[in-house]
Amino acid sequence: MSTPCDGGYAVDVRDGRVGIVMGRVGTCVQLRPPGGGREWDCPSGDLRPATPGEVLRARVREVNAAGRLP
């Protein structure tokens, strides 16, 4: 299975997190949460392209989290 291009969305199958592909270092792909935040590394073999529904859910979750009052 191919890894999404930089800027595309992917799922880390180890824990189900959806992230935006930021780049690659060796055999790892760097992902960042859709709403921003700390990047994490994922081996390219543990990634799959995110479905449109997964991307939408991840983005809605981030927008809802940003709208909560402290």
Rank of each mutant, 00 (worst) to 15 (best):
M1Y: 09
S2A: 09
S2H: 03
S2T: 11
T3P: 04
T3R: 14
P4V: 00
P4E: 02
C5A: 07
C5P: 14
C5D: 12
D6Q: 14
G7T: 03
G7E: 09
G7M: 08
G8Y: 08
G8R: 09
Y9I: 02
Y9F: 15
Y9C: 06
A10L: 01
V11P: 00
D12E: 00
D12V: 02
R14N: 10
D15V: 08
G16T: 14
R17M: 02
R17C: 06
R17E: 02
V18P: 00
V18N: 00
V18Q: 01
G19Q: 05
V21L: 01
G23Y: 04
G23P: 05
R24M: 11
R24H: 09
V25Q: 15
T27I: 14
C28L: 13
C28P: 01
C28G: 02
V29K: 01
V29T: 02
V29C: 02
V29I: 12
L31T: 03
R32V: 14
P33D: 07
P33C: 10
P34H: 00
G35I: 02
G36I: 05
G36F: 07
G37R: 15
G37H: 07
R38L: 15
R38N: 10
E39W: 12
E39D: 08
E39P: 12
W40Q: 04
W40N: 04
W40P: 02
W40F: 12
D41H: 05
D41M: 14
C42E: 12
C42P: 15
C42M: 09
C42W: 05
P43G: 03
S44F: 02
G45Q: 15
G45L: 07
D46Q: 08
L47M: 06
L47E: 04
R48M: 11
P49N: 12
P49A: 01
P49S: 09
P49T: 02
P52C: 09
G53N: 08
E54N: 06
V55R: 12
V55E: 12
L56W: 10
R57E: 05
A58T: 06
A58Y: 07
A58M: 07
R59I: 15
R59S: 15
V60Y: 11
V60E: 04
V60K: 14
R61G: 10
R61T: 15
E62C: 14
V63C: 05
V63I: 13
A65F: 08
A65V: 05
G67E: 00
G67W: 00
G67D: 03
R68S: 05
R68F: 05
L69T: 06
L69R: 15
P70V: 03
